[in-house]
Simulated assay, not measured.
Amino acid sequence: MTTLVTGTGVGPLLRGWREQRRLSQLELALRADSSARHISFVETGRSRPSEEMILRLAEHLDVPVRERNALLLAAGYAPRYTETALDEPGMATVRQGIEQLLAGYDPYPALVVDGSYTVVAANEGLGLLLAGLPEHLLTPPVNAMRVTLHPEGLAPRIRNLREWRGHLLHQMERQIGLARSEALRKLYEEVAAYPLPEGSAGAEEGRGEEGPEQYAYVALPLRIEHDGQVLSFVSSISTFNTPMDVTVAELAIETLLPADPATVAYLRSARPTP
């Protein structure tokens, strides 16, 4: 994934991150146990920060791991974080852990995506929801946002598409603000331009034909129709704690947990018998 940055050298880059986080030099200095004068000197190029100072500032600015490497390179230092492909031998433990986690969620849908929402792993529960979609959306690399919002994807099946679409676009906007990725911005522009399916349940405002909701959801549900049954899920997203590898840092595990007893019963009944 490419990163959209402004300026050259570590000073302008740090200033860009600080301004994006809407912090003054004094606020950042207090958080990083430094001084506003030193922060100013770093941003203007009058002072070369140490590796430790760069990483400390990056931590307090919530700079993604990939961009922390970019800051170090701009200052003339070697990258601190590795970037290991998920299929390499050194990532075997990570792959095994992901597979076990996804299998443990079956029959509830679960998937793992990278920083550009490319699906890197999924369980059988998700496959149930994707059944019947056109091949061009399911040919690897599969993108979770395209599959969900494309008019030939899940969009026509989502009963509260307007609400769910707004939630996903807001999620992407926030991610763009954190990562400043040009590739992610292009994906956002693509999926945001998809039209709402006309004359389908996907264009409704979020109520099924059965009338008012029977359950008080704890979070915005995804209400999706499957074989004539309206299923309701709440989404949960998990990431790895304090990752030291760029690939691992950008992985997110999303689980769709049943939001009502009817969905639980349907998923269990639809699960293949071992």
Rank of each mutant, 00 (worst) to 15 (best):
L55T: 05
L102N: 01
H136W: 11
M53E: 03
F41M: 11
R68G: 05
G97N: 14
L129A: 08
S47W: 00
L129N: 07
E52L: 14
L102W: 11
G132V: 14
L137S: 10
Q100V: 13
M53D: 01
V94H: 05
A70I: 09
E135N: 09
R80M: 08
A74S: 09
I39Q: 08
Y81C: 09
L102Q: 04
H60A: 00
N69W: 02
L72I: 07
T82V: 02
V65A: 02
P79S: 07
A92V: 07
I54Y: 00
L55W: 09
L128W: 10
D62W: 01
E67I: 04
L126K: 08
A75Q: 03
L61M: 00
V112T: 05
G115S: 12
L130C: 15
V63F: 05
A78P: 02
H38C: 07
S40L: 08
R95I: 12
G90L: 11
L129Q: 04
A122W: 11
G45K: 14
P107G: 13
I54W: 07
G127I: 10
D114C: 05
E52Q: 15
P49A: 09
R46N: 15
E67L: 13
G76K: 00
S34E: 06
G132C: 10
P109C: 13
M53K: 01
D62R: 01
A78G: 13
D33F: 14
G132F: 04
S34D: 09
T84Q: 10
P64K: 07
A92Y: 00
E88L: 08
T118D: 15
L101K: 01
P109Q: 14
R66H: 06
T118L: 12
S40D: 14
L55K: 00
Y108K: 01
L102T: 04
S47T: 04
N69T: 03
D114G: 09
S47E: 01
P107K: 12
P134G: 10
A36Q: 15
P89K: 07
Q96H: 08
P64F: 09
T84N: 12
G97C: 14
M53R: 03
T84E: 10
S35F: 06
D62C: 02
A70T: 12
R66Q: 08
I39E: 06
P109F: 09
Y105H: 13
D106H: 03
I39C: 11
R66W: 03
M91Y: 04
D106G: 08
V42N: 02
A103Y: 11
